[in-house]
C-alpha cells in the first residue's frame, strides 16, 4: 500500500483559537476516505490546514504528501504537488471565463503551457459528461451559476486538473440531493488506483452512493474513531451525541 497523505499530530489555530488538537490521518493511494463530524468539530479547518490557507496557523505537527513535506508550503505550491480542494461555495470571479480559467489552472498545475485545441476538446468532453450546458464555457467563472452548476464546475476542475488527492469539502451540502448525485458521480469518474479521495461531510446522506474504504469521526479537533463504511450507518442512527459526551469527559479530564 503506497502512502499518499500522512498527517502527523497536527495542532492548528484559527484566529488564535485552537481548532485541531493533535490530528493524525493516513491516506493511501486508491483509497476513499470520509471524515464526518458534528458542526464545529474542525472539518473545514482540516481541509484548509492541509492547503495551508493563510489565517490557519499550524502550531505543531507535520503533513507529508507523496514523500514531500508540505507542512509549510504555500497553497499554490501544495496545489501543484497534486492536492485539489473543491469548495463548498466556490468564489465568483468576474471577467474570466470558465474555460479560460480551467486552462490557466491546468497550465499552472502542470507547470507548462497547455495546448489550446487539445485542452478544448478535453474540456468539452467533460462538460458533456457532467451535463453542463455548453454556454457555461464562456460565462464568467461561477458568476450566476446555480448551486448545482457551481458543484459541477468544481467537479469539472477536479477531472481536468487530475490531482493525486481530491479533498471534497461538502460540510454543508449534505441535504442537497442534486449536489450529492453530482459529487458521487464525479468521484466515480475520478477514482483510480493511483489517486485518492477525502470527503468531508456532516451528513451521511452524502455517502449513499459512495463506498468509502474508511470513515473517520472528527470531534473537537481530533479523530475519535476510524472504521469501515459501516460506521456511516451508526452515525445515521445515533448521530454524534455519544462522541460528544465521550470527548467532553476526556476534555474535562484534561483540564
Amino acid at each position: 500500500m503506497e502512502k499518499l497523505l500522512e498527517i502527523k499530530n497536527i495542532f492548528a489555530n484559527v484566529d488564535k483559537k485552537e481548532i485541531l488538537k493533535g490530528l493524525n490521518l493516513v491516506i493511501n493511494k486508491g483509497e476513499t476516505h470520509v471524515i464526518m463530524g458534528p458542526n464545529g468539530a474542525g472539518k473545514s479547518t482540516l481541509a484548509n490546514v492541509i492547503l495551508n490557507k493563510p489565517a490557519y496557523t499550524k502550531q505543531s505537527g507535520k503533513i507529508l504528501f507523496d514523500d514531500v513535506d508540505i507542512t509549510d508550503l504555500r497553497t499554490d505550491q501544495i496545489a501543484r504537488q497534486g492536492i485539489f480542494m473543491s469548495f463548498q461555495q466556490p468564489v465568483e470571479i468576474e471577467g474570466i471565463s470558465f474555460f479560460d480559467f480551467v486552462k490557466t489552472a491546468k497550465a499552472s498545475i502542470d507547470g507548462k503551457p497547455v495546448s489550446y485545441f487539445e485542452f478544448k476538446d478535453k474540456f468539452e468532453a467533460l462538460i458533456e459528461k457532467l451535463g453542463i450546458s455548453k454556454e457555461f464555457e464562456n460565462r464568467d467563472l461561477n458568476v450566476g451559476f446555480s448551486g448545482g452548476e457551481k458543484k459541477k464546475a468544481e467537479i469539472l476542475q477536479l477531472l481536468a486538473l487530475e490531482p493525486k488527492l481530491a479533498i471534497l469539502d461538502e460540510t454543508d451540502s449534505g441535504l442537497d440531493v442534486d449536489a450529492i448525485k453530482i459529487v458521487s458521480r464525479g468521484v466515480e469518474m475520478f477514482k483510480n488506483e493511483n489517486n485518492a479521495v477525502l470527503i468531508i461531510t456532516h451528513s451521511s446522506k452524502m455517502l449513499e452512493n459512495l463506498k468509502p474504504d474508511f470513515v473517520h469521526i472528527l470531534v473537537d479537533g481530533k479523530i475519535v474513531e476510524t472504521a469501515g463504511a459501516e460506521l456511516v450507518e451508526k452515525i445515521e442512527k445515533y448521530g454524534y451525541a455519544d462522541y460528544k459526551s465521550v470527548n467532553q469527559i476526556t476534555g474535562d479530564e484534561n483540564e
Binding site: R74, A79, F87, E94, S108
Partner: peptide, 28 residues
C-alpha cells in the same frame, strides 16, 4: 477578496498571478 485569492491559489496560481487575474477580470 482574500477568499478569491485563496480560491485561485488552490488551483495552482501564485498569489501574484491570482491578483493579476482578479484585476484583469475587474477591468474586463
Amino acid at each position: 477578496s482574500e477568499e478569491a485569492i485563496y480560491y485561485l491559489t488552490t488551483r495552482g496560481l501564485s498569489e501574484d498571478d491570482a491578483k493579476a487575474l482578479l484585476v484583469r477580470g475587474f477591468a474586463s
